[in-house]
């Protein structure tokens, strides 16, 4: 699973993996839904990635507290990235 891969989840929607970060020993992913014609953006999710015994993964919803913590970290990281991009 790499960044920008398109994942089909069991809600039968396709998501692009836009961001994947290990925070406090957990891996969190930012997923954005891509419609079947690969365009319209319908839904965005921040989920926990869990490795399964058979070398595949599943994603799990976060609780409120975790959600705000992760999104805050993501925002901070992205702001730094923007700064870096702008500086470059």
């Amino acid at each position: 699973m790499e960044l920008y891969d398109i994942l089909t989840l069991d809600d039968d929607k396709d998501y692009a993996l836009l961001k994947m970060e290990k925070i406090k020993e957990e891996t969190y992913c930012l997923l954005v839904e891509v419609d079947k014609d690969e365009n319209p953006l319908e839904n965005s999710l921040i989920l926990r990635r869990i490795a399964l015994p058979d070398d595949t993964y599943e994603f799990e919803e976060l609780n409120e507290e975790e959600y705000s913590m992760v999104s805050e970290i993501f925002q901070e990281q992205l702001m730094n990235e923007i700064e870096e991009e702008e500086a470059a």
């Binding site: 891969d5 398109i6 994942l7 989840l9 690969e38 595949t56 994603f59 919803e61």
Partner: peptide
């Protein structure tokens, strides 16, 4: 907690 399983992974088109 709602779980999503990854059914398929493919490279972006």
């Amino acid at each position: 907690k709602k779980k999503f399983n990854v059914k398929k992974v493919r490279k972006p088109l």
